[in-house]
């Protein structure tokens, strides 16, 4: 690690510490009523208490579960559909207009439809999360498969590679940077929608915890939940970028 990187790490850490300090100051000075704004000390205490009793851990796992299932279903479906559509010019021209109609549709508009279809259930949450998270992945995969270098298909033809080999050895790796970028965007969408579904359907998870804490004016618990959600978002994004870096080592190695 060189000095510039070290410097920027220290600077960004200092900024974060500054925000926490400011927050503590505002809370201590009672600039905002403690009913609405706990200090970082109280929020932290609530976090520790929540984990000690096991309550918060259950909620955390609940949210992670919703997010993971929805994202997983969206990934499988998005990549499979995207590969099918992206690798065929005919498919692209048939399907692209419909996609352009569905894509900008706010997922929040789909939630009432899902509730009408599935009720306030886990299935509803799974459907909504998967539906919302599929778009970045689907569009990125379509783009990735459509942008495979035609020369490589000629190489494949002259080697008499099978269709399956062409997909797994040429098209999929070639599209992998796009697919991974799509997956990184989707994981954030999945987190947002998990919280929304938990709030709306009262499913066990941090969304529900945050809502109940707010209604009961337990501001420290509310903030503990929000902090945890932030941590989930940060860690999943970090994990995705580590995976991306590893899988796409071949791209960064150029000069």
């Amino acid at each position: 690690m060189n000095r510039a990187v070290l410097y920027w790490r220290a600077a960004s850490f200092a900024v974060a510490a500054g925000f926490v300090g400011l927050w503590q100051l505002i809370a201590d000075q009672r600039l905002v009523s403690p009913v609405f704004l706990p200090g970082p000390d109280r929020a932290w205490a609530s976090l520790v208490r929540g984990f000690a009793s096991g309550d918060l851990l259950d909620k955390l796992l609940g949210t992670l579960e919703h997010m993971a299932y929805g994202w997983f279903v969206a990934s499988i479906a998005g990549i499979a559909l995207g590969a099918m559509i992206g690798s065929s010019r005919t498919m692209r021209s048939y399907v692209a207009p419909s996609l352009e109609f569905l894509r900008p549709l706010p997922v929040s508009a789909v939630i009432p439809v899902a509730i009408a279809m599935f009720g306030l259930t886990q299935s509803m949450a799974l459907f909504v999360i998967a539906f919302g998270a599929i778009w970045p992945m689907l569009l990125a995969t379509i783009h990735g498969f459509a942008a495979v270098e035609p020369r490589l298909y000629e190489v494949a033809r002259s080697l008499h590679m099978s269709r399956l080999a062409i997909i797994f050895k040429i098209a999929l790796p070639s599209a992998s940077p796009d697919i991974l970028a799509g997956m990184r965007l989707s994981v954030t969408v999945a987190l947002i929608l998990s919280v929304v579904c938990e709030i709306l359907a009262g499913l066990d998870g941090l969304g529900h915890w945050v809502l109940l804490s707010a209604r009961a004016f337990r501001s420290a618990d509310l903030f503990a939940g929000v902090i945890l959600l932030g941590v989930i978002g940060y860690l999943t994004a970090l994990a995705m970028s580590v995976v991306e870096k590893r899988l796409l080592k071949w791209r960064s190695s150029g000069h």
Partner: peptide, 8 residues
């Protein structure tokens, strides 16, 4: 540059 697999 186009005929080689950059990921291999």
């Amino acid at each position: 540059g186009k005929a080689l697999l950059p990921w291999r």
